[in-house]
């Protein structure tokens, strides 16, 4: 089964992408067109079937949350990855991740929620959601960055379906642990499975998405197929890949990098040019594909949207 396309609306009939990508314009005018397109968009990009490697996902809803910066090339995004499950070199994920099978795929959802714990098949997990394109900046803790045109849907929409209780203070995620297909898990580096987590209000934030694709195509394994988190205001390692488990928990989970080197990697890991990594500066970054270094922006440039989440918190303490 393929991803259902909307045959009667061609993309050319939808409002030009630029309109959505430019927030100011979006707010200023053409609201009728926008509203119309959004209604249309709600019918588009709806997930209709199994995701297989490199299927294309057409007629995506555009998002006003996208940046209008130029995305990095498909090749750069898919050949330069940190995914230690396949090795430590940036080229290893592209070299070895084909050894991981992602079909069938299900996600265990459990913890402090009203709905009963369940193994949810990927199809069932994705079916109710409308896929949209979100062009986000991605800032790695190693001081490089990219712009990636993700395809996904808001994480909060998924969370609501499981009705977390008031005891659910955090969401904890786990990556697939399958050493037979993930050679990096056979050697010593991090502890497996890879664990990440978000505070509940972070997880419910509209910028936090689960991605299933990129550049209008389903994710490649090296990008964390078939389902990964994208939290654009945090360092890349927070955006956990190839998710097999989501759990609502009361206690702050210990994420893998924090377990490995607690004084260098914290739980929050918000992009912050003022709080240096103990061994290198976070003040600037190299945007892949450009020569000059650029200054890093607070919360990776998403401060307007997310700074409120951390009001009154000491961000140097909660790094």
């Amino acid at each position: 089964m393929l991803i259902r396309q909307a045959p009667d609306i061609r993309s050319s009939e939808i409002t030009p992408e630029r309109l959505y990508r430019n927030r100011r314009q979006f707010i200023q005018g053409a609201s009728g067109v926008v509203a119309g397109a959004l209604v249309g968009g709600a019918m588009l990009g709806r997930y209709g079937g199994l995701l297989r490697a490199q299927e294309s996902i057409d007629n995506l809803k555009q998002s006003p949350l996208s940046t209008d910066e130029e995305p990095n090339s498909y090749e750069d995004i898919t050949t330069y990855n940190n995914f230690y499950e396949f090795g430590l070199d940036k080229g290893d994920p592209a070299r070895y991740s084909h050894e991981m099978s992602i079909d069938p795929w299900s996600v265990r959802v459990e913890g402090e929620m009203n709905k009963p714990a369940a193994d949810v098949a990927l199809d069932d997990l994705l079916r109710p959601h409308t896929l949209e394109e979100r062009i986000y900046r991605l800032r790695c803790v190693e001081a490089w960055s990219m712009v990636v045109p993700w395809v996904g849907f808001p994480l909060g929409d998924l969370i609501k379906r499981f009705e977390p209780t008031s005891k659910a203070k955090f969401v904890k995620f786990e990556t697939l642990h399958r050493p037979s297909e993930m050679r990096g898990q056979r050697g010593r580096s991090l502890e497996w499975p890879y664990v990440e987590g978000l505070r509940m209000d972070e997880a419910m934030h509209p910028l936090a998405i689960l991605a299933v694709g990129m550049y209008g195509k389903t994710l490649l394994n090296q990008q964390g197929a078939p389902l990964r988190l994208v939290v654009p205001w945090k360092y890349g390692f927070k955006s956990i890949k190839s998710i097999v488990k989501m759990e609502f928990v009361e206690e702050q989970p210990r994420n893998s990098w924090n377990v490995a080197i607690p004084n260098e990697y914290g739980f929050y890991s918000n992009v912050n040019p003022e709080v240096d990594h103990p061994r290198w500066s976070q003040a600037s970054e190299r945007r892949i594909g450009s020569f000059f270094r650029m200054r890093t922006a607070m919360f990776n440039g998403y401060a307007d949207q997310v700074a409120g989440l951390y009001d009154g918190m000491d961000l140097a303490q909660n790094y």
């Binding site: 050949t79 940036k90 080229g91 190299r286």
Partner: peptide, 11 residues
């Protein structure tokens, strides 16, 4: 010359 210095040539 071959353009084969990875996505991050400087690194």
């Amino acid at each position: 010359v071959m353009g084969d210095l990875t996505a991050n040539p400087i690194e």
